[in-house]
């Protein structure tokens, strides 16, 4: 049975020390969340340049959730740099007519199972509403021309 309601793919960038084990904990608790969610393990999401996010949307990724360690970040100063970068990505997204809600920065710890599921579900609701990335542009165009 194919779930035809899945509107697109969600990429989760999960930190090795907190959020990735947190996603595993969801499995250990045998909870459930939509299968269009792909978790990539990263040492720190500060590694990704603005372009990486934009490329992902270009490639057809509908949404990205960055699950960081938040203030518990083992790399001193990295979290602040990340937050600043995400602000710049938001600007670029706006310029391209991408809904900024497609990119979310959160903090998930090793046992935050409920928070993980909540984030994923919320993002799914959102992309159901928004449709594939890029479709906003048309909407905007329509809106502007009207």
């Amino acid at each position: 049975m194919k779930d035809t309601t899945i509107p697109g793919k969600i990429l989760v960038l999960a930190t090795e020390s907190c959020a990735y084990p947190g996603a595993d904990a969801v499995g250990q608790a045998h909870l459930s969340y939509p299968a269009n969610t792909y978790v990539l393990r990263v040492p720190s999401p500060v590694l990704f340049p603005e372009k990486f996010y934009l490329d992902c949307f270009d490639k057809g990724i509908s949404a990205i959730i960055i699950m960081s360690c938040g203030v518990e970040c083992p790399y001193e100063g990295a979290y602040d740099a990340l937050a600043q970068r995400i602000d710049r990505v938001y600007q670029l997204m706006r310029q391209r007519g991408l809904d900024v809600r497609r990119l979310r920065l959160t903090a998930i710890c090793t046992v935050c199972t409920r928070a993980f599921v909540k984030e994923v579900n919320a993002m799914n609701e959102l992309i159901k509403e928004l449709g594939p990335p890029g479709t906003e542009i048309e909407l905007q165009d329509v809106a502007q021309s009207a």
Partner: peptide
Amino acid sequence: PTLDCASCITTP
């Protein structure tokens, strides 16, 4: 006093 998650400190 850091309010970090106990599991995140202990599991490593």
